[in-house]
Simulated assay, not measured.
Amino acid sequence: MKTAIILKQNINSAKLIAEYLKEKCIQVLHITDNPDVIVRQAVWQCDIVIIDKSLPESFSGLELARTIKKRSPKTYCIVCILPEDFHANLALYYDVNGYLSVNHSLTDLVACIETIQEGYRYLCPAIKEHIGEPALQEHALQEPIYDISEQEKKVLQLMLSGMKAKDIADQLYISVNTLNNHKTNIRNKLKLHSNRELLSFAVKNNIVKLKYASVFR
């Protein structure tokens, strides 16, 4: 069963969401309006976090989502926001998996969860209608989120060339341990289990370019 944490100012609304998610086989572990609770909890043990953009004591739901994603890249973050507060940069600057209107429907929430679990960003209909930018809608709904840094892309490209770990580490001026940490982080982000899966995925999804076909023989 998937697990979730809900951080909302309207606790009654959050309880209704929790009951609905339970019917969809998603167990809500915590309902709170206190951001500190989320930070203290082991969010890496939670699959989904639903956050209001505007929080008590001037907390930013977007910044909180960023903190969670840094600690736990596998956790899906959904931010509830007023459509008029949404702008193009949000879809690109913050590593948020889905954006819902503050007054979203339960159907929108389920559609959001289903979409982000497939690896895509989600914008609810109210936000899409407000922004009215086809190009942004296309990007937000169809471009998979890989969140791979430039350094990690370099690691992938050198791995793809067939270089040994020590040679890759020397070329990037890092230790082999650091290199292994990069590999682990990338696999965790992409939810893959082996380097072979990782390289195959990176090529198929144009994260890096295939230059040496011998890697997959």
Rank of each mutant, 00 (worst) to 15 (best):
E129T: 11
G132H: 06
E152I: 08
E143A: 06
N181L: 15
A111D: 14
L141A: 05
Y94C: 06
D85Y: 03
K191V: 07
T115S: 15
L90C: 04
E138A: 09
I78S: 00
G162R: 05
K128F: 03
A126C: 07
S149W: 14
L90S: 01
G98V: 07
E118D: 07
L90I: 04
C80G: 05
D147T: 10
T184W: 09
D85M: 04
E57W: 11
K183P: 01
L136F: 05
L172F: 06
I145G: 07
L158V: 07
H182M: 11
N185K: 13
N97Y: 03
R187S: 05
V102L: 15
S161K: 02
H87P: 00
M163L: 15
L64N: 00
N188F: 09
L123T: 02
S194K: 10
L156S: 10
A169G: 03
I148R: 03
R187Q: 08
A135C: 08
F86G: 02
Y173V: 03
S149L: 12
C124R: 00
I186V: 15
S194Y: 08
H193A: 11
E152L: 12
S175T: 15
N97K: 06
P73V: 14
S149Q: 09
Q157G: 08
G98T: 09
Y93Q: 09
I68P: 00
I116Y: 13
K74R: 13
I174V: 14
H182V: 11
E133A: 15
E129K: 12
N180Q: 15
Q137C: 14
K128C: 13
K153W: 03
S161R: 03
I68M: 04
A140G: 10
L82N: 13
H139C: 09
K189H: 12
I81V: 04
